[in-house]
Design a protein around this nucleic acid. Structure first.
Lengths: 216, 216
DNA sequence: GCGGCACCTAGCCGATCGGCAAGGAGACTA
DNA sequence: TAGTCTCCTTGCCGATCGGCTAGGTGCCGC
């Protein structure tokens, strides 16, 4: 937990107006090879020990460089977090937005398939976040994380957000992520896609049945 | 991540023979009221910010005491972790062991029901660990955690441990935990039990179907 | 050959980390 | 009243945390 100090209050106040400094840390896209190596090492370590359980020194050690070299590419630890998470979030947001526009929403199984494909594309990030939800409480990502999670749940079970829907939606998302985590390393994407889609489809079918039971 | 220092190596070497000190930290059971208050505060904070994201100072602050007061009850942070996790693990081990002895194992749905009941009894711990799996990489609990997880999975899908079974087992456990996390605070245990059991039963049925599909 | 840029190191900063020794307040009992 | 026990405080320790400055090396186009 970050303890609030006078300095931290000041830093938060000027966060949005911090000027650009030397180094590529200020440019968001088009990562250099060095920056990408930092992200790869960080993702590996975050997945293993969690965000809070990994220090900048750990990342530097894995790369065989000093801590300041990491600082050159990303000026804060939160910047690494954001860089790792942002592409995955952006893509999921796009998928959900597209599905929201679709008028007829008879079956949610199609959406499950799209979500499974998405998970497989961002497998490493998904495996990490499935075991380290605490990282999403960081201020830099928490709003995005909450929004994307809520809208994804709504994509699967509708936006009513009653207790029943919430449970089944969360269960479905967690089941898919959990299956991904437990998957053997040599499992092909095609096989994983088939199995996970079936897991999700079963849960969506179960949800519909539960709704019918409650209404009937 | 804990960096290995010469001192840490020494400490690990003498861990098993560390002598009893003053204070109740050496007695495992029969917690005093003060110790229980520490555990309650710690569990709340761990669930919110994760184990690594919570400092002993945070726990002390929540209780309105000093850090050393926490130290009086538990001499290390790992000791708090162990104290929180151990009862839940022990109970699950007992359940799994009992189910392993049962000769006929036609349907796993009964086991799902027992597991759901177990989750509801240890709801706060379960919600915490579902979002903070990184805490289970700590040396004090990692062996127990791995064993209890593997045997619980085996209880649900058998001990073959092929890729298909592993995925469905992990998906089932994660789905139940995820449903628990997403449950509204005012949800009754009886209602939760019903819904979660149905979630688990659906997944077990899906697993059986997947096995039949693969074999046939 | 020279300025400029990308990339990295050495070394430091204040803050916070988990952990610990010494001692005191208060209740209870012999 | 003296001794003891529980529970907590003050105050400190070395280590590590995230973050930062100044400086250097090597490659680039000019």
């Amino acid at each position: 937990m970050t303890r609030v100090t006078p300095w931290a209050v000041y830093a938060a106040a000027v966060t949005s107006t911090v000027p650009a400094r030397s180094g590529p840390a200020s440019m968001p896209a088009a990562r250099s090879a060095g920056s990408q190596r930092v992200l790869d090492a960080a993702l590996e370590l975050f997945a293993e020990h969690g965000f809070d359980g990994t220090s900048l020194q750990d990342i530097a050690d894995r790369l065989g460089v000093t801590k300041a070299a990491v600082y050159y590419h990303f000026h804060t630890k939160d910047e690494i977090l954001r860089a790792l998470v942002q592409p995955a979030f952006a893509e999921l947001m796009a998928i959900v937005t597209e599905e929201e526009r679709r008028p007829a929403r008879a079956g949610r199984v199609v959406e499950v398939g799209r979500y499974v494909d998405y998970l497989l594309r961002h497998r490493r990030v998904a495996v990490w976040l499935a075991r380290d939800a605490a990282a999403m409480t960081r201020a830099v990502v928490t709003d995005q994380a909450t929004e994307v999670r809520e809208r994804t749940e709504a994509m699967l079970v509708g936006s009513e957000a009653d207790g029943l829907s919430r449970i089944w939606a969360a269960a479905t998302l967690q089941a898919l992520a959990g299956g991904l985590v437990a998957a053997p390393p040599d499992a092909t994407d095609a096989w994983l896609r088939e199995e996970l889609t079936e897991v999700g489809a079963h849960l969506i079918a179960g949800y519909r049945k539960a709704v019918r039971r409650r209404e009937g």
